[in-house]
């Protein structure tokens, strides 16, 4: 449903999105997770045809965003970071305006407006001026605006920002109930949000994709596991990387082995452990027993871990703040 290939977006000085590729299947909910300034909003703006990409391709609902923007726009619902509301309009009036703009037939419009305001719990403020709504209600009107025309693809930029805990749960439920018929991509910098609502998560940091996986896989890969850099060489003769990799994978407690480029005939690997395993002694023994030279063996930080740390720590801050209120 959504296909992004080598997407790059440069601003005057910064590279906001750098060679990002991912795919989202039909009916999936995907979380776009990253700290502030990671490039989430920028990617979404490219997907919604608001910004053209500097390089690379993006396809939404089978149409290219640069070649067929009109076809893409017909098929998406978009909730920008700041809900796009006109303060001088009443809620129902606003939804009617958006409905017209999205090309809903005149006969269906009142029914659509009614059903969407019930779905988003804003039926009771229908006659209120948007200027007089609270932040949470504005966010809900923004969400209603995004789904009013029943789009194939929903792009939601931080849909739960500014809501109180009860509203957050309601909004997450609403989003989950939309999956299936709709393909949804939502951005957030809150980890539990992704855990609760999304099937797949794309983690992005400083414009680059750090990981794409299911939430469960990612958390188990990280909690209590370690990453180790290993450098070996042959005592005499040739040594194949595949051979060493195979040996390392046999070490108990190892979850995966990634080949890295080494120097001067040395072979370099990054080994990740399972939860709660200390694999360094075993790796050392394995290498020496095989008759290879061990040049280096030390723990390294996951690139993913750094991002996760940042994400989880902001969540703790948010939670303590929430508890204090």
């Amino acid at each position: 449903m959504i296909k992004v290939e080598g997407l790059t977006k440069r601003y005057a000085r910064t590279v906001a999105v750098d060679n990002v590729s991912f795919e989202v299947a039909k009916g999936q909910i995907v979380g776009f997770l990253g700290p502030n300034g990671a490039g989430k909003t920028t990617t979404m703006r490219v997907l919604t045809c608001f910004l053209p990409p500097s390089a690379g391709q993006a396809e939404v609902a089978g149409f290219n965003v640069t070649a067929d923007p009109m076809e893409v726009k017909k098929r998406i619902g978009y909730l920008p970071e700041v809900p796009p509301l006109y303060p001088e309009m009443e809620v129902l009036e606003y939804l009617t305006f958006v409905g017209r703009l999205k090309g809903i037939p005149k006969a269906d419009l009142p029914a659509r407006v009614k059903s969407v305001s019930e779905r988003c719990n804003i039926a009771d403020v229908g006659a209120k001026l948007i200027a007089k709504l609270s932040k949470g209600y504005r966010q809900r009107v923004g969400l209603a605006q995004a789904i009013i025309h029943n789009p194939e693809v929903l792009i939601l930029d931080e849909p739960t920002a500014g809501l109180d805990p009860k509203q957050i749960i309601e909004t997450r439920e609403l989003i989950k109930s939309l999956a299936g018929d709709h393909t949804i991509i939502l951005s957030t910098h809150i980890l539990p949000e992704v855990e609760q609502t999304c099937e797949k998560v794309i983690i992005i940091n400083k414009g680059k994709v750090v990981a794409i996986d299911t939430v469960n896989n990612l958390t188990s890969r990280l909690r209590g596991s370690e990453a180790v850099a290993v450098e070996v060489s042959a005592k005499n003769g040739e040594l194949g990387a595949a051979q060493v990799q195979q040996r390392l994978e046999q070490v108990p407690g190892v979850s995966r082995v990634v080949t890295r480029s080494g120097k001067e005939g040395h072979l370099r690997f990054e080994v990740e452990s399972l939860q709660g395993h200390h694999i360094r002694p075993e790796i050392a023994r394995g290498v020496v027993d095989s008759g290879w030279n061990l040049h280096e063996l030390h723990a390294v930080a996951f690139s993913l871990e750094e991002v996760f740390l940042e994400l989880t720590s902001t969540e703790t801050v948010a939670q303590t703040k929430g508890a204090a209120q």
Binding site: T48, K73, E81, P84, Y86, L101
Partner: peptide, 14 residues
């Protein structure tokens, strides 16, 4: 300023 331009420009209108 208010960001509503994002709504107009991402709607199926030229």
């Amino acid at each position: 300023r208010s960001g509503t331009i994002e709504l107009l420009v991402t709607s199926p209108v030229r």
